[in-house]
Amino acid sequence: MDETGKELVLALYDYQEKSPREVTMKKGDILTLLNSTNKDWWKVEVKITVNGKTYERQGFVPAAYVKKL
């Protein structure tokens, strides 16, 4: 869990989004888990830094590609 009590997951593999509802992740990324009720796709939040500014983006990743921490 992070400092706000949200559950975290670890990306076990790289994943490139294939639709606007998904998010890209790299092996080793730590993501915030938002919803894991679907056994195949989990909703996560990723933080992306571009030119020194951090953005948060929500989307789905394959559940088999992440592990709860």
Rank of each mutant, 00 (worst) to 15 (best):
M1G: 15
M1C: 14
M1S: 14
M1A: 14
M1D: 15
M1Q: 15
D2C: 14
D2M: 08
D2L: 09
D2P: 12
D2A: 09
D2N: 10
D2R: 05
D2Y: 03
D2W: 04
E3I: 08
E3C: 12
E3A: 10
E3L: 07
E3P: 11
E3K: 08
T4M: 14
T4Y: 15
G5E: 14
G5I: 14
G5S: 13
G5C: 13
G5H: 14
G5N: 12
G5P: 15
K6W: 09
K6M: 11
K6A: 12
K6E: 10
K6Q: 12
E7S: 13
E7A: 09
E7H: 13
E7L: 09
L8R: 12
L8Q: 10
L8F: 15
L8W: 13
L8Y: 15
L8H: 10
L8N: 05
V9Q: 00
V9H: 02
V9L: 11
V9A: 08
L10M: 14
L10G: 02
L10F: 08
L10N: 02
A11E: 01
A11H: 01
A11W: 02
A11P: 01
L12F: 03
L12N: 02
L12E: 03
L12I: 09
L12M: 08
Y13V: 12
Y13H: 11
Y13R: 14
Y13M: 13
Y13C: 12
D14F: 03
D14K: 02
D14S: 08
D14L: 01
Y15R: 02
Y15T: 01
Y15A: 01
Y15G: 01
Y15K: 00
Y15F: 07
Q16H: 13
E17K: 13
E17Q: 12
E17I: 05
E17M: 11
E17A: 15
E17R: 13
K18T: 12
K18C: 10
K18E: 06
K18P: 04
K18M: 13
S19T: 11
S19I: 04
S19Y: 06
S19W: 05
S19H: 14
P20Y: 09
P20H: 10
P20Q: 09
R21D: 13
R21C: 12
R21M: 12
R21K: 11
R21H: 14
R21T: 12
R21W: 15
E22K: 04
E22F: 05
E22P: 04
E22V: 04
V23M: 06
V23W: 03
V23P: 00
T24K: 04
T24F: 03
T24P: 07
T24S: 15
M25K: 00
M25N: 00
M25L: 08
M25F: 08
M25R: 00
K26L: 07
K26P: 00
K26C: 09
K26F: 12
K26Y: 11
K26Q: 10
K26A: 08
K26D: 03
K26G: 05
K26R: 12
K26N: 07
K27P: 02
K27D: 02
K27W: 03
K27V: 06
K27L: 04
K27H: 05
G28W: 05
G28C: 08
G28R: 01
G28D: 05
D29K: 02
D29W: 09
D29A: 06
D29N: 05
D29I: 02
I30L: 08
I30S: 02
I30K: 05
I30G: 01
I30E: 03
I30C: 06
I30H: 04
L31F: 06
L31Y: 08
L31E: 00
T32E: 10
T32C: 08
T32Q: 12
T32P: 15
T32M: 10
T32Y: 10
T32F: 09
L33F: 03
L33M: 03
L33K: 01
L33I: 03
L33D: 01
L33P: 00
L33N: 01
L33C: 06
L33A: 02
L34H: 03
L34Q: 03
L34D: 01
L34R: 04
N35S: 13
N35M: 06
N35P: 03
S36P: 06
S36F: 06
S36A: 12
S36R: 07
S36C: 09
S36Y: 07
S36H: 10
T37G: 10
T37K: 12
T37I: 08
T37V: 09
T37W: 08
T37E: 15
T37A: 12
T37R: 08
N38Y: 07
K39E: 09
K39M: 10
K39F: 08
D40H: 14
D40F: 14
D40L: 12
D40T: 13
D40C: 10
W41R: 03
W41E: 03
W41S: 02
W41L: 03
W42R: 01
W42N: 01
W42M: 03
W42T: 03
W42H: 02
K43V: 14
V44W: 00
V44Y: 00
V44I: 06
V44H: 00
V44E: 00
V44M: 01
E45M: 12
E45V: 14
E45L: 12
E45H: 07
E45I: 12
E45W: 05
V46L: 12
V46N: 11
V46H: 13
V46Q: 15
V46Y: 07
V46E: 03
K47I: 13
K47H: 12
K47P: 13
I48R: 07
I48V: 14
T49Y: 11
T49E: 13
T49Q: 13
T49D: 10
V50C: 10
V50M: 12
V50Y: 10
N51Y: 07
N51P: 07
N51V: 06
G52T: 07
G52N: 09
G52Q: 07
G52D: 11
G52V: 03
K53E: 14
K53C: 12
K53G: 08
K53M: 14
K53V: 14
T54E: 12
T54F: 11
T54A: 13
T54I: 12
Y55V: 15
Y55Q: 13
E56W: 15
E56H: 15
R57Q: 08
R57I: 07
R57W: 03
Q58Y: 07
Q58E: 09
Q58T: 10
G59I: 03
G59K: 01
G59V: 03
G59N: 00
G59Y: 02
G59Q: 01
G59S: 01
F60D: 04
F60Y: 15
F60S: 03
V61P: 00
V61E: 00
V61M: 01
V61Y: 00
V61N: 00
V61A: 03
P62S: 02
P62N: 03
P62H: 02
P62Y: 02
P62I: 02
P62A: 02
P62M: 02
A63L: 01
A63R: 10
A63W: 01
A63S: 14
A63Y: 02
A64P: 08
A64S: 12
A64H: 13
A64D: 11
Y65F: 12
Y65I: 07
Y65Q: 05
Y65C: 09
Y65L: 12
Y65M: 14
V66D: 00
V66N: 00
V66K: 00
K67V: 15
K67S: 09
K67F: 08
K67E: 14
K67H: 09
K67G: 07
K67M: 11
K68E: 06
K68C: 08
K68V: 12
K68G: 05
L69G: 03
L69S: 03
L69Q: 05
L69K: 04
